[in-house]
């Protein structure tokens, strides 16, 4: 079973977390939405699988390349 770490591509803050740990994701599913430069930046699942670890909460700051969640597939 492979695990995939999903990293933020931008520096910003977490606006909304759309899915919960245990949820199934398809490739391209929006897991959370970040806010950066007054834009809403979706974090999408790069692979299908199960969301096993969500490491950030709404309002939290995130850095570029920071792992924000993990998918098991």
């Amino acid at each position: 079973m492979a695990t995939t770490e999903v990293a933020s591509e931008v520096t910003g803050s977490v606006w909304k977390v759309e899915l919960e740990e245990g949820d199934h994701v398809d490739e391209g599913s929006v897991i959370m939405i970040l806010e950066s430069m007054k834009m809403e930046i979706p974090v999408e699942a790069p692979v299908a699988g199960k969301l096993v670890d969500v490491r950030v909460s709404p309002g939290e700051s995130v850095e570029e390349d920071q792992v924000v969640c993990v998918i098991q597939s």
Partner: peptide, 8 residues
């Protein structure tokens, strides 16, 4: 690319 710096 609006994914980065809003495309600015």
């Amino acid at each position: 690319n609006p994914m980065f710096k809003a495309g600015a």
